[in-house]
Design a binder for these strands. Sequence first.
DNA 1: CTGCGTGCTGTGAACGCGCTGAGGACGCCG
DNA 2: CGGCGTCCTCAGCGCGTTCACAGCACGCAG
Lengths: 216, 216
Amino acid sequence: MLVVEDEARLAAALQRGLQAEGFAVDVAATGPAGLDAARHGGYDAMILDVMLPGLSGYELVRRLRAEQHWLPVLMLSAKDGEYDQADGLDCGADDYLTKPFSYVVLLARLRALLRRGAPERPTVLTVGDLRLDPARRRVTRADAEVALTAREFALLDYLMRRPGQVISKIELLDHVWDASLETAPNAVEVYVGYLRRKLGRDRLETVRGAGYRLAT
Amino acid sequence: MLVVEDEARLAAALQRGLQAEGFAVDVAATGPAGLDAARHGGYDAMILDVMLPGLSGYELVRRLRAEQHWLPVLMLSAKDGEYDQADGLDCGADDYLTKPFSYVVLLARLRALLRRGAPERPTVLTVGDLRLDPARRRVTRADAEVALTAREFALLDYLMRRPGQVISKIELLDHVWDASLETAPNAVEVYVGYLRRKLGRDRLETVRGAGYRLAT
DNA sequence: CTGCGTGCTGTGAACGCGCTGAGGACGCCG
DNA sequence: CGGCGTCCTCAGCGCGTTCACAGCACGCAG
């Protein structure tokens, strides 16, 4: 279990309590430290405070999800207004608890979370000011809607699930185009071109001889 | 009555018992199957286990409510902790029973639930100036009544429960048409055409290669 | 500088998706 | 039995999408 909480007393209490339940518990006191620990992996779930020094809980989850980490996250917040529950869940948290909370409730929710297993992928992908919503089949760039054809959408979808990574044309052909169908590799170049025109020139980088990369 | 319970023996017992009381009973054994059945509508109430394969009872109710389904839900759980009660009810369940329970109590609560009727349901679905009343089987557009056939109504009903989302023809065929029956996908196109003529051209958007979306 | 390889893009053609009108099958009612 | 409404299939058409091709731009090596 990973606990990310800056308030020392609460963190210690959580650690003791969870250890008593048989969990192995690590504590991180700042946003960046928490993110690093979560990235490192090996945890079954994370308990995460919203108000953190260095990096908010929201931002932390968003980054984690962007990097394809699907660790179950239980969020804690003192707020019940300004930031609401919806915000937390939208960011990719799996459950949400407002302070003050009963310890029993926390445990129960944690167990539920572990039972449920890894969360499904979030409903919207976000990279920079780019947003892609698979359910609504909508793409926005800086809140302006961008009309994409089916193929363009599928390609961008694939790229946005691994932002910053270089993805080869072959891989794109295999996954975005029907594997069986023999299509010229040039098709990828063509569609990258289309996307560049619609999304902005420098968003998709060419890595000569290797593939393409979505700028983060 | 819809019973969602994965433990086969209990499910069978409930079915028999309820049928003896004069209810028509369908059983679903997994979370997703239960959700689909509940979505499809036509039930007076649902008996729902919390621990389900695929999708927890909590999540199931949450999604159901999010989609504007106000079916009365009686939740069953092996837990009796503080968490489960509160959380089950928070999720939108209407009553809560912990296992093991007496069959008489179950029946009594069920009756109470049915008497009480659907929970503060907004009796109509509203999207823009479109209104659909499932109970009265009526549809109005800008307060003018629109006459729809049964199939048109079912299709619009399904679309209005997920406004803004793209819904594929396959999904529509599965849910609006009888799953068993093999119907040509073209039927969907035809009925979308009918609806467009009656509701206005730009209310139903076509997303080429993906499906249809009800404009919000 | 020339030559080569890789990637970009404008053109245009074929394809196939989705829309529509026509009409047949079926059930309901008088 | 005939009229009517609904459901659904079918075939044709329009048009957006997809993709191949060829010529061009650019980086790199000799």
